[in-house]
């Protein structure tokens, strides 16, 4: 699992770590039981403070997304599909918010926005998926 932290981004580093790990869990790149890279390795590879990584890991643990086993490491928790689905919805919602803010600044009307949305949705040809519980 490869984390790419941008220290020159205004987004705080611990938030980048949390987002990227949650994204990996939501897409299935990280499966329940998978071992996360150690705090030391993440810190060294990305040239960030170990405390920052430790803090992100402990936040994720508190949220139940990962489980820490003393002396062994951190592992992805047994996230039921409902939790993954909720995380995924939250992430997509925040992306939508950014796009909607842009659309507002570009002075699109609500019907126009809905038009664009349906147009793109039709274009993409998403495979059929059962909606999660």
């Amino acid at each position: 699992m490869f984390l790419k932290i941008d220290t020159s981004s205004p987004t705080p580093v611990y938030q980048q770590i949390i987002s990227q790990i949650k994204y990996a869990i939501a897409t299935g790149a990280l499966q329940p039981g998978d071992r996360l890279p150690t705090v030391r390795d993440v810190a060294a590879e990305n040239r960030i403070n170990r405390n920052t990584v430790a803090r992100a890991y402990s936040d994720l643990e508190r949220e139940g997304a990962i489980v820490g086993r003393a002396g062994v490491g951190s592992f992805v928790a047994d996230n039921p599909p409902a939790v993954r689905s909720r995380t995924a919805r939250l992430m997509v919602s925040s992306e939508f918010d950014k796009t909607l803010a842009k659309a507002y600044h570009l002075r699109l009307s609500r019907p126009e926005i809905e038009d664009v949305f349906h147009e793109r949705l039709d274009m993409i040809n998403l495979p059929e998926r059962k909606s999660k519980e």
């Binding site: 030391r40 810190a43 060294a44 590879e45 040239r47 403070n49 170990r50 405390n51």
Partner: peptide
């Protein structure tokens, strides 16, 4: 990377 991997501890 060297500083963080080989030196930093709490």
């Amino acid at each position: 990377e060297g500083v963080l991997a080989e030196y930093q501890t709490p």
